[in-house]
Design a protein around this nucleic acid. Structure first.
Lengths: 227, 227
DNA sequence: ATACAATATGACGTCTTAGTCATGTCAATG
DNA sequence: CATTGACATGACTAAGACGTCATATTGTAT
């Protein structure tokens, strides 16, 4: 945890430090991020940094927790009013919300992604924070889906959850490259996956694939063969 | 490229250096790997290193290319005699061979994986090498599959390829954790995914999911509903 | 045996980093 | 005015990294 001193700083200064730190951790592996560099870019004295944070780990965990808080906030804001979605509708919403976060806060998403694929010297603490991002609940989702007869009974729950986790984590990257989104598209934060028609088409295609693979009675098969 | 001097070294010495370097690059991000540390662990003089390699990048690309050569060799060795597999049989074989490589040469696989998820200061050169690992050809595989009527005509080729690439890259990790394989199981290099019954069951489950999702006439649906 | 080429060595100069600490500034309070 | 507590600063130490180079060793060919 950052010190009280840090939270007493002016909004401007705190934001400047966090901004620089986010940028560094988003663009370099944890081990290669340099405190000296952050201090230089944020134009604060070395000594000040150590009055705000215990060290690199402290700062990093703070950023991770900020990111997860931001994600939770966004997800809650996007939560549909209808509370009892079918399994695949819920899944689609989850993936869309996650991609939206990735497009709206690319650097925060990047830090979380790094925590996931690289090794951090303190994996447990990092995982505890990133788990708030939601990737852990796919096992339950599938198990419930089978009970509700949305999901085919023959699927291997754990493996299906693995597939979903993986897609969940990577789909944002894919969407960006598939739709050829530029850094400008993203950084302006104007792109809305819920509104953009190309994005919606991609999500439909993805859900068709997933539902055909796991669903008990996949729409797409009926739809296609009835023609 | 390493210098001629390097290739003139005794097998023993060359292997020692490569072994240490593989270990370092498998366990640290590229930026954090230290030449000084490699030199220390391999017990050679600093000056010698720079007579063998131009620097870190040179060494790294050499390792990557060694790894890919090793993978190609293993894959060719595992290639089934029957040359005209159906799309999903071919896919299953590819994924199995890739997982086998990952279990047999975990450190090399790890280096390639890192090249994939972290940024390297020279992405183009690294990608050119890792592409030899085979992940690039899923687009063709799906397109061909549609032509041969193995793959359902409604699937989005590019997205299906994305899904397969992702699974292809991650399935080894998953298999290890799902089967609770220990470091010992792996490092002995005795584990054979083609022979182990638990592993085969996992591959069956995976292929059922993938084929149900993408296949034109998935076995699993007929099989289940005919009961 | 001598000369020449190939290989090995590690000290060295220069940088960068992490973290500390003595000192300095400033505003509020008694 | 004086004191106190909060915050700011950057020089400094110790450690480690990179890449070079003058020198030493080994091997080979004449």
């Amino acid at each position: 945890m950052p010190t009280e001193t840090f939270f007493n700083l002016t909004e401007e200064k705190r934001a400047r430090i966090i901004g620089v730190a986010v940028d560094e951790f988003a663009n370099k592996p944890y081990l290669s991020v340099s405190i000296s560099e952050i201090v230089r870019r944020a134009a604060i004295a070395k000594g000040s940094f150590y009055q705000y944070f215990e060290g690199k780990k402290d700062l990093y965990l703070h950023l991770l927790s900020l990111g997860m808080a931001q994600k939770l906030a966004l997800v809650n804001q996007l939560k549909p009013s209808n509370n009892s979605l079918k399994t695949f509708d819920y899944l689609r919403w989850m993936i869309q919300a996650s991609v939206q976060f990735e497009l709206q806060y690319p650097r925060l998403a990047r830090i979380a992604y790094r925590a996931f694929v690289e090794e951090i010297p303190f994996p447990d603490e990092a995982t505890e924070l990133t788990n708030q991002g939601g990737a852990y609940l796919f096992n339950d989702l599938i198990a419930q889906g089978i009970l509700h007869e949305d999901v085919a009974p023959w699927v291997d729950t754990d493996m299906a959850a693995f597939l979903l986790r993986t897609v969940y984590k990577q789909f944002g990257h894919y969407l960006v490259s598939r739709l050829k989104l530029t850094a400008a598209d993203i950084s302006e934060g104007t792109f809305d996956v819920f509104e953009n028609e190309d994005a919606q088409q991609l999500f439909r295609n993805l859900m068709d694939l997933l539902e055909a693979g796991m669903g008990r009675d996949p729409e797409i098969r009926n739809h296609y063969f009835s023609k």
